Amino acid sequence: MTSIDKVTATKEALQLIERLKVKHGELLFHQSGGCCDGSSPMCYPKSEFFIGDVDVLLGYIGNCPFYMTEAQYEYWKHTQLIIDVVKGRGGMFSLEGPEGLRFLTRSRVFTEEEQRNLK
């Protein structure tokens, strides 16, 4: 079996990422942990977000790194995150807001075989 990604994105999310790259340059994602923006995947210019010692790199979507905190990862480590796009207003600091769209995290639990083959 091939290795399994911890984070993936739908075709619609990848298209939005490409549009945002044209406007903002290199991007990164950080899964919000709650607070002001709920638990949304937040999209930032790569140069304007500092990754901390407690952030875990889950993988890449649209060639953009995707992070979350270690503590949050402990809850999500058995799931694959699937980043999608829906109409509406997302996190107030995330770049997709002015597009009238928001990124949304969907998830599914890995099978035992998939867990053995995680990247």
Results as ranks from 00 to 15, higher is better:
residue 56 V to W: 02
residue 41 P to F: 07
residue 67 Y to T: 02
residue 29 F to N: 01
residue 15 Q to I: 09
residue 79 T to W: 01
residue 42 M to L: 15
residue 15 Q to E: 14
residue 55 D to E: 15
residue 50 F to N: 08
residue 36 C to S: 08
residue 83 I to C: 07
residue 91 G to S: 09
residue 95 L to A: 04
residue 104 L to T: 01
residue 35 C to P: 06
residue 71 A to S: 15
residue 88 G to T: 08
residue 59 G to I: 07
residue 72 Q to I: 04
residue 23 K to Q: 08
residue 34 G to W: 03
residue 98 P to K: 10
residue 86 V to T: 13
residue 37 D to K: 06
residue 17 I to F: 05
residue 18 E to S: 13
residue 22 V to D: 09
residue 85 V to G: 00
residue 77 K to E: 06
residue 34 G to T: 08
residue 13 A to M: 07
residue 96 E to Y: 02
residue 20 L to P: 00
residue 78 H to Y: 12
residue 93 F to A: 10
residue 76 W to G: 02
residue 48 E to M: 04
residue 32 S to L: 00
residue 97 G to C: 07
residue 87 K to T: 08
residue 72 Q to N: 11
residue 92 M to F: 14
residue 54 V to I: 11
residue 13 A to D: 04
residue 80 Q to M: 10
residue 113 E to R: 05
residue 77 K to V: 07
residue 25 G to L: 04
residue 84 D to S: 08
residue 14 L to E: 14
residue 22 V to I: 11
residue 94 S to W: 01
residue 91 G to F: 03
residue 27 L to C: 02
residue 75 Y to G: 15
residue 92 M to Q: 14
residue 50 F to D: 15
residue 79 T to R: 04
residue 44 Y to N: 01
residue 75 Y to R: 15
residue 81 L to A: 10
residue 49 F to K: 14
residue 20 L to A: 00
residue 54 V to Y: 14
residue 39 S to N: 12
residue 39 S to P: 05
residue 14 L to S: 10
residue 71 A to N: 13
residue 33 G to F: 05
residue 30 H to A: 13
residue 69 T to L: 09
residue 26 E to D: 15
residue 112 E to Y: 02
residue 52 G to R: 10
residue 25 G to E: 09
residue 77 K to S: 10
residue 27 L to S: 06
residue 34 G to C: 04
residue 110 F to E: 12
residue 91 G to M: 00
residue 36 C to R: 01
residue 113 E to C: 07
residue 32 S to A: 15
residue 99 E to D: 11
residue 106 R to G: 11
residue 108 R to G: 11
residue 36 C to I: 05
residue 96 E to W: 04
residue 75 Y to C: 10
residue 78 H to W: 06
residue 113 E to N: 11
residue 69 T to V: 04
residue 56 V to Y: 04
residue 73 Y to P: 00
residue 106 R to W: 09
residue 104 L to K: 04
residue 72 Q to L: 14
residue 45 P to H: 03
residue 106 R to S: 10
residue 84 D to L: 03
residue 62 G to Q: 02
residue 43 C to P: 01
residue 19 R to S: 13
residue 38 G to A: 10
residue 58 L to M: 03
residue 91 G to H: 00
residue 36 C to N: 13
residue 13 A to F: 02
residue 35 C to M: 14
residue 49 F to T: 05
residue 76 W to S: 05
residue 76 W to K: 03
residue 42 M to C: 15
